[in-house]
Structures are given as structure tokens and as C-alpha cells.
Amino acid sequence: MTTGTRSKTLEPIMATDGTTRATDGPARAPNGTRLAGPASEQRADYEPARPAGAVLRGATLADQGDYAGAEAVLRRAIRLGEAAHGPDDPRLAPPLRALAAIRAARGGLAEAQALSLRVLALVEDGARWQEHERRSEQS
């Protein structure tokens, strides 16, 4: 028979300086947000640092009916992506597309159309660049 002791599972946590350490609690973001568990358990002010995370967070907020929150998360991700990679980077396409869908759902059709056209241009430019790179490698 056991004496009531149980082993704790150490979970990795990312520190603000980018290093990883172990903790005996759930993983948390630098702002204290719990990273483990469903999105519904995350704090409302949690904003992911990566565009893919922002798209997922925006979709979660939109599914919960918080369209303004979803827009804010996506606009921030777009702003950060533009600052890091420039306004013509194809990696901006997913958050731009998600923002276009939310704007269309909220009745902002003109902005949704402009965002969708921007996504199309980014994807076409990315495809042209990949084709150019492929042909350059073959020569």
C-alpha cells in the first residue's frame, strides 16, 4: 500500500528570456496566462506571439461571440508580422484571411473585400516567388 505520496510531473515553461525551465505547475506565458488546457480556460487578455496562434485565438474568440476581441488579436498579429517581415510577406495571409472573414460576418464588406484582395495578392506573389526559385535551382 502506498503512503499517500505522489510524484509531481514537471512541465516545461518558457521564460521571458527565451530559455526553458521546469515547473511543477501548468506552463504559463510571461504575462501569467496558463498555456496548457483548452483555450476557454485562458485569460481574456492572452495574445499569442505567433500568427498561427493569433488565428486560432481569433477563431476561438469569434466562436464565443467576441468579434471585437478576435479583431483586436488579429490586427495585432498583422501589425507585428508587418513590422517583423514587411507588408508583402506571405506569412501575413492567414491572419488577414481570418480578419476578412470576421469583418464580413460583422457587415464590414468593403474592408473584408480589401483584405481578401490583399491575401490573394500575397498568395500569388508567394507562388510566383516559389516558381522562380524552383526554376533557378533547375538551371
Results as ranks from 00 to 15, higher is better:
R118H: 03
L109R: 14
R103K: 15
G37P: 13
A59G: 02
G58P: 02
H132G: 01
G69P: 00
T3F: 12
L115N: 06
Q113Y: 10
I102R: 01
Q130G: 10
A15Q: 14
E71M: 04
G58N: 10
L80S: 08
A52T: 10
P26D: 12
R91Y: 08
A72R: 09
L115K: 00
L10E: 05
R34E: 12
A77M: 01
R57W: 06
R118L: 02
T20R: 07
A22N: 03
G86W: 05
E11L: 11
R28W: 02
M1C: 11
D89M: 01
L92M: 09
Q113K: 14
D89V: 07
L96Y: 03
R76I: 01
A127Y: 07
R21S: 12
L56Q: 11
G25I: 07
A29M: 08
R135A: 14
R103Y: 05
A110E: 15
R79S: 13
G107D: 02
E82V: 07
D24P: 15
G18E: 06
I13R: 13
D66K: 15
T9Y: 15
K8W: 13
G53K: 12
L122V: 03
L61S: 03
G25L: 05
D45H: 03
A104V: 01
P87I: 05
P94N: 02
D66H: 06
T3W: 10
A100Y: 01
R128Q: 15
S136P: 00
G81Y: 00
L122T: 11
G32N: 06
R76M: 12
P48Q: 03
A112L: 03
G126M: 07
R34N: 13
D125Q: 15
R50V: 11
